[in-house]
Design a protein around this nucleic acid. Sequence first.
RNA 1: GCCGAUGUAGCUUAGUGGUAAAGCAGCGGUUUUGUAAACCGCCGACAGCAGUUCGAUUCUGCUCAUCGGCUCCA
Length: 599
Amino acid sequence: MNNIEHIRHSLAHLLAAAALEIYPDAKNTIGPAIDNGFYYDFEFSSPITDKDLGKIEQKMRELIKHWQIFEKIEASAANAKKIFSDNPYKIELIEDLEKKNEQVTLYFSGPKGKTPTVSELVFAKRMTVNGGFVDLCRGGHADEPSKIQSGSWKLSHIAGAYWRGDEKNKMLTRIYGLAFLSKEELEKFEKDMEEAKKRDHRKLGQQLEIFTFDNDVGPGLPLWLPNGTVIIEELEKLAKETEFAAGYKRVRTPHIAKESMYKTSGHLPYYEDTMYPPMEYEGTKYYLRAMNCPHHHKIFASKPMSYRDLPLRLAEYGTDYRQEKSGELFGLMRVRMLSMNDAHIYCTEEQFAEEFRSVNEMYLKYFKLFGIDRYVMRFSTHDPKRLGEKYVNEPLLWAKTEDMVRKVLVDSKIPFVEVPNEAAFYGPKMDVQVWSAIGREFTLATNQVDFAVPKRFNLAYTDKDGKEKTPLCIHRAPLGTHERTIGFLIEHYAGNFPLWLSPVQIAIAPVSDKFNDYAKTLSDSLRKADIRAELYNSNESLGKKIRQIKLAKIPYFAVIGEKEVEANNLTLEGRSGDKETLEIKNLISKVADEIKNRK
RNA sequence: GCCGAUGUAGCUUAGUGGUAAAGCAGCGGUUUUGUAAACCGCCGACAGCAGUUCGAUUCUGCUCAUCGGCUCCA
C-alpha cells in the first residue's frame, strides 16, 4: 500500500535524482518524509536559489515517468563505500551502519527489470544508472512512484540546515517540498496556510495595535501598546487571583544581580551565552537577569525557615532578558525581554506530589478558561550521557525526581509524552507544547523540579527532628510569559478576545453628533463600573463607525440615536450579530457580570 | 549565529538608470449621518552607508531589520 509517508519519502528520492542530474557535482545527504511533505539536504558546489527550484521540479516530473518500482539492493559496507566513494556524507552514514552492525541497503528507483547489481554499481560509482536512481536508504517507498498524482506535490522553498543537525557541522542546502495524497489536499493545505497567515499574531498584533517593535529600541524588545497592556493587566489579575487563592505569596525583586549570585546558583556556565554581557560598576559585574529563581532563593534564605513555613510559594511576574540569537527571534513568541508568570514552590519531599499535582491543575484550569484543547504535555527528562555537561551530575537524584514526576502525571491521569534530553539542567520538567497559527511548535508553559540549585544556595529548613534539610523547589509558569502567551492567544482567538480580555469591551456609537453628549454620559457611567467603553463619536457616517468597531474586533457595541434617548434604553449588539435591548442600568450589570465571570 | 529571500509614506500596494503613483489612515473643511468605507482639499516614502554612472529608489558591495528554515529555546 502507498501511505503518504512512503509517497513523501519517494519524492525525496526523486528530488535527489533530479538535483544530481542538473548539478552532477552536488552531494546528496539525507531526505526524509516530514509533516506535509519532504525535504532533501545537499551540498552544492555553488549556491542555488529559489529561482532554481522550477527547473529541478521540472526534471523531477520528467524522471518520475520512468520510475515504475523501488527495489532493494543489499550491499556490504565495503562495497557501499566504494559506490559512494565521492560522497563523504554517505560514507559517514555507511560507517555508522557498520558500527551498529546493520545491513547496508540501497534502493533503486526506475524502470522495472533494470535494477543494477552491486558490482555494476561499484563499477559505475554513480547514482544515476539504468534510467533510474540509486540511493542509500533504509526503505519505505511507494510501490509505483510513476503513479503518484502529478498535482499532489511541488517543491516549496530552500533553507539552510546543518549536517546531522549540529551547528558545528557544515551547513547544507535543504530543499523542501509539499506532498499530499491528492491535488485537492495540496490545494487545501495551501489555502489553509493562507488563512492561517491572517491569524498570525505578528499581523493581527499590528492591526489590533497590541504591540510594536522599533529599530532604536532593538530587535526582540516589544513595545506594548495600550491595547496590549490591557491584556497584560487582565492576565496578571487572573494570575494574582488564582495564585492568592492557592496560597501563593507575592514578592518583587530587582532585574539585575551581581555575578557572584549566578556563580553560586550555577546558572552562569549554562546560560552565560544567552545572558546579556555584564555591566561593570565600582569593580563589580552585574548581570541583567535571564531567570528569576536565584532572586527568589535569596528571599527563601532571608530568614531561618521551619518545616512549618513549607510549602512556601513565592510568586512574581518576573521580567527577564535573554540574548537570543538574531535569527531565532520570532514576533512575540521568541523575544529578548520577557515577563514570566513565575513562582517557586519550596517544599519537602513528602509535599512534592501534592504541590506538583496542584500546579498541573492550575494549568488545566487556565486551558479550560481559554478553551485551549490542542496541546501536548511533554515530560522532559535528562540524558544520562550528558550528565556533568548539560545536566547536573546527580544520577540518583535524577532518577528519583523523574520517578516522582512520572508518578504524579500517571496518578492524575494526565496524558503526556516522555521526551529524553529536554530537561532543565537542575531537574526534570513538564512542558506544555502548543502550535502557532503557521504551525510552529512552542513551549507555552512549564512546570519544573529543581533538586540542585537550593543545595547550591545552602537553602535549608529546620525539620521536626531539629535537623536542617534542603527543600525541593518547583519552578512553574502556567501562564508562561506575557509575550508568548499573548502571541499565542491572539492566534488562538484570531483577535476575537473574550469580553474580559478585550482591550475595548463595548463601543458606543452615536448616530450623529447631536447625541455625542448623551453617548459620553453613557460611556462615562460604563467606565465608572470598570467596563472598558470607548466612544466612537468621530464625524463619520454610522456605517463607517460600525466598520471601525468590527475591524477592531470589539465584542459589544451600541448605537445611540433618537430612539434610544427617547426610550431610555439601548440595543447591545455582539460580534455574531446577536442583539439585546436593555435598560441602561441592566446593561451595566449584565456586562459587568460577564466580565467578572470572565466570559 | 548560519543558509536563502525581502526591504517604496503609519498600513496595503504600484513603478522606473532621468521630478515616485495610488487607496486606507492622519490633518483641515463641507456634511449631521440608523448597522461594514459620505464628499473636497492637504500632509506624508524609495531602510542606512559606500561604490559604479553625467545621473542610482532602480545596478554592485557592506550594514541594519524582517521573513522562511537550521541551531537554540519560556
